[in-house]
């Protein structure tokens, strides 16, 4: 099986675009995988018991939090260091 990694040719980390980030409350997640399938980036990973989020590429659109039926995901303000270009530049 091929791992779900970004192609090595892409040097972008689109996560630096983000102004808000999704925060997962793992105990509320029942692994229904709606956020996984609805993420346009493919930033959400399937896991044991609950999903995980790849913040390197998440653009902070908020679809995952909006669609989560159990409100396990909330959008939170991004840290100022991130907004100043703390993450790898795009």
């Amino acid at each position: 099986m091929i791992p779900n990694l970004p192609t090595p040719h892409l040097k972008f980390r689109t996560g630096s675009w983000r102004t808000v980030r999704p925060v997962l409350q793992a105990d509320k997640c029942n692994n229904c995988l709606l956020c996984w399938l609805f993420c346009p980036e493919g930033s959400i990973r399937r896991g044991q018991g609950h999903v995980t989020i790849d913040l390197d590429y998440c653009k902070g659109c908020g679809i995952c939090a909006h669609e989560c039926p159990r409100h396990a995901l909330q959008m939170a303000e991004e840290a100022p260091s991130h907004l100043e270009g703390g993450a790898a530049g795009a």
Binding site: N4, L5, P6, T7, L10, F12, R13, T14, W17, R18, P40, E41, G42, S43, D54, D56, Y57, K59, G60, C61, A90
Partner: peptide, 8 residues
């Protein structure tokens, strides 16, 4: 895969 520059 991730890394494309489509809008959020």
């Amino acid at each position: 895969v991730p890394g494309h520059r489509t809008c959020a």
